[in-house]
Design a protein around this nucleic acid. Structure first.
Lengths: 251, 251
DNA sequence: TTTGGAAAGTGACCGGCGTCACTTTATCGC
DNA sequence: GCGATAAAGTGACGCCGGTCACTTTCCAAA
């Protein structure tokens, strides 16, 4: 475990390195280039490898972390080892603001999904940026509001739906329109079933069962890396209509 | 349904009424009395009766609402009628900030638990207050951060614990020290079992069963309105140790 | 092409807990 | 104190879905 300053893992790199720029960070886009430069200097810059655990629930750091390159996942593990996925963080976004705002310990683990370039800003500095720039504060508020809405939905799902329903919903969230053939829907790249399971809070096996059920009902079709949604209507119907039909899928 | 301006229910009362003061609102405590007065004038003031539905998921209003007197509950209902409780809001606090921040529809229902005096502030006004007062913005951020942490915990619980465990935890959250006999613990006033159930996302019956189990194990003792926690150690053990002992409770 | 390891598919089992249907006990207004 | 209504206790039943234990299929590196 390559712990270093601030007990975050990864390799610290000098501030003035090719590519070390906060200009791609959405949150800071309206900040003058002079001040942005000051923030860049205040950051600790880090490179991490895919698989690195950037933050664990035990880390003492309270920094806000801007993702310049790469992608990360926020997850947690139960005592029994069950994985619960919270979110993904893409380049241009940031995370770790909770601890920076309230000073409490980190509430989840964050692992790099690909190689990442990160800029870490100390809480005091972050709060100053917020105080000096009301529009940044509003953006952070908007982000937290979005997170809360997502959490609330998820709590409702967990509290009121069955495991199958939750898998339907999770799949529905992943559906995008076919970029080539319009009017056709697909999921690409298909996440691993285990990943879907941890987002829907169920088991890999249940996801597998649901998916083969959907496949045999001609709602889904699996072709190597992409998953074609043949009948998006019926998929949505399945979600709406709760357990109503559940086994009438085939007709 | 007594809908009125802003499609919130309840009786609108004139701004200048005895008791219409924002001075007890924690969020606004550092605002000068002059400016506070301006905010008071900008608010729509309302009195609501216990049981009134202040906000439903369909309401068009995006106001932030300060609770001057009374108490409210934030809940949601599934399609099947199952109730999911999110939170309580006490006098001196506020709610409805999500819609005011992001302009999206309300995500939950809010009902008055007792008679309430409310001050409703339009989103634009609220955002102005935030922009003008960085410390208010920080406080709102802190509140949202706290909500997110609570949500995250709840998601973990729902995703990884059994129903009994969740009831234990819910009970543990309600425990306070006996104000008279120190070192002794109790729950007062005891919420209805149905209320506990909706917070732990289970059924009334399960709560009843768990509680009689705990009672027969001499961990809890019920005396009309108060619930005495005779053995807080064992209660915590039950929570920690997951399903490990579960039925060893009695020994 | 081979091959090893990961991902996916599937059957059998069974226990937790939601549902239903009552009975019993509190509680509150008169 | 008494009736009415809500809250709480409890047994029986059944099924959803988690767990285990394999097999089968992918896929990527050698």
């Amino acid at each position: 475990m390559a712990e270093s300053r601030n007990d975050l893992p990864g390799v610290i790199i000098p501030v003035d390195t090719e590519g070390n720029s906060l200009s791609k960070v959405e949150l800071l886009k309206d900040i003058s280039s002079g001040e942005l430069r000051a923030i860049e200097l205040a950051c600790t810059w880090r490179k991490c490898k895919a698989g690195d655990e950037i933050i664990s629930r035990e880390s003492a750091s309270r920094d806000v972390i801007f993702v310049i390159e790469g992608e990360l996942r926020i997850v947690n593990f139960s005592l029994t080892g069950r994985e619960v996925a919270y979110a993904e963080v893409a380049a241009g976004s940031y995370f770790g603001e909770l601890a920076a705002i309230d000073g409490a310990p980190r509430s989840a683990n964050v692992v790099a999904h690909r190689n990442c370039l990160l800029a870490c800003l100390a809480p005091a500095h972050f709060r100053k940026v917020i105080s000096d720039h009301p529009d940044v504060a509003i953006q952070v508020l908007e982000k937290l509001a979005r997170i809360i809405r997502i959490c609330d939905d998820r709590i409702m799902d967990l509290a009121t739906l069955g495991a199958h329903q939750r898998v339907y919903r999770e799949l529905a969230k992943l559906v995008t329109e076919d970029p080539i053939r319009k009017g056709s829907w697909l999921i690409y790249p298909t996440p691993t079933q285990a990943a879907i399971a941890s987002r829907a809070s169920t088991t890999r096996e249940t996801v597998a069962r649901v998916m083969s059920q959907l496949a045999s009902a001609d709602i889904l079709e699996r072709k190597s890396k992409t998953l074609y949604v043949r009948d998006i209507e019926r998929l949505n119907l399945l979600i709406e209509h709760a357990g109503a039909s559940e086994d009438n899928v085939a007709r």
